[in-house]
């Protein structure tokens, strides 16, 4: 068994909404696999199928070689699952939450301590504090400890960093790195593109479809059009002006700069950048910088999403 997860032509609809539309992918053993996509892309539905909480309409999925429909009890005792929004008991203390989830799996905190120690030690000083009184980052660490306490063979994490501060997010990904190094397979979803680069491979998911699966660094390489970063002055004025440029393909606000994609695939990026500078100067935008850049995951995502038949087309 070389694949920890195998998904084949998986579809699931709720009423008239296609949450998952004919999805197929594999996750190798020991891989840190990312599912990246906006809210409503179908990430949670996919997790709920993999964790046996939902039955797919069509297609098959296996986790650890076990069928998600037939072998649900075997899967349930071997996966570690962290649902979105940290499913903890707010009125129980940190220690009580952890002990409870250990007991449900028929084990004890002591037996699982070695695995959770690097994470749990950080919140252990607050072991008697109620979970409701924890910060987002501490809740996240407790939830991860609870999902790990029974020493699962695979970790399924649904948006584990949503609602958590930037420092905790980085720490969390460091922990995932350690867990991966110990040989644990991890499937994690996130709406944040910057987190995707820490995965071995990333699946871009949108509108219930997988747009692309690649290692994060190579995702941008398939970007076929010249991409120019533009910065300086009035950003909304620039956005407006760039969108009126005859060869504009897409223009997006991107942090404090704008990413402009030209529709002429064969135009040299430097030439395009020069054209833009002249054009903008002509429209009264002074001191504007424009230079070619390599596409990142987010650029690819925007580009792919623009061409995908999206039922919920607005994504941040």
């Amino acid at each position: 068994m070389s694949n920890a997860v195998e998904v084949r032509s998986l579809s699931k609809s709720f009423a008239s909404v296609k949450a998952l539309d004919d999805i197929s992918f594999d996750v190798g053993e020991g891989e840190l696999f990312g599912l990246v996509g906006p809210d409503g892309a179908g990430k949670t539905t996919l997790f709920r199928i993999l964790t046996t909480l939902l039955v797919p309409d069509r297609g098959t999925a296996t986790v650890l070689g076990l069928d998600v429909v037939k072998d649900l009890w075997e899967i349930r005792s071997r996966v570690g699952y962290m649902p979105g929004g940290f499913a903890l008991y707010p009125d129980l203390s940190v220690a009580e939450n952890l002990e409870f989830f250990a007991a449900v799996f028929g084990t004890t905190v002591e037996k699982g301590y070695e695995l959770i120690a690097p994470i749990y030690r950080q919140i252990e000083p607050f072991r008697d504090r109620r979970a409701e009184a924890l910060s987002g980052g501490m809740k996240q660490k407790l939830a991860l400890s609870c999902a790990l306490v029974h020493r699962p063979d695979i970790l399924l994490l649904d948006e584990p960093t949503t609602g958590v501060d930037a420092v905790s997010r980085r720490e969390f990904w460091d922990q995932l790195g350690h867990l991966k190094a110990s040989g644990l397979t991890i499937v994690v979803s996130t709406p944040y593109m910057d987190e995707a680069v820490r995965c071995d491979r990333v699946a871009l998911i949108h509108g219930g479809k997988i747009l692309e699966i690649d290692p994060p660094r190579s995702i941008g390489t398939r970007y076929g059009l010249p991409l120019i970063a533009v910065r300086g002055g009035d950003r909304f004025g620039l956005l407006h002006a760039l969108r009126e440029f005859p060869h504009a393909h897409t223009v997006y606000l991107f942090g404090d700069e704008l990413h402009y994609t030209d529709s002429r695939a064969d135009a040299p990026p430097e030439t395009v950048a020069n054209e833009l500078r002249e054009y903008l100067a002509g429209r009264g935008h002074k001191g504007v910088e424009a230079h070619p850049i390599a596409a990142g995951i987010e650029d690819s995502f925007m580009e792919l999403m623009g061409s995908a038949p999206a039922p919920t087309a607005t994504a941040a």
Partner: peptide, 11 residues
Amino acid sequence: LGTLDQLSVTP
């Protein structure tokens, strides 16, 4: 709370 989902993915 979501704990029902969490509990469902246990034996």
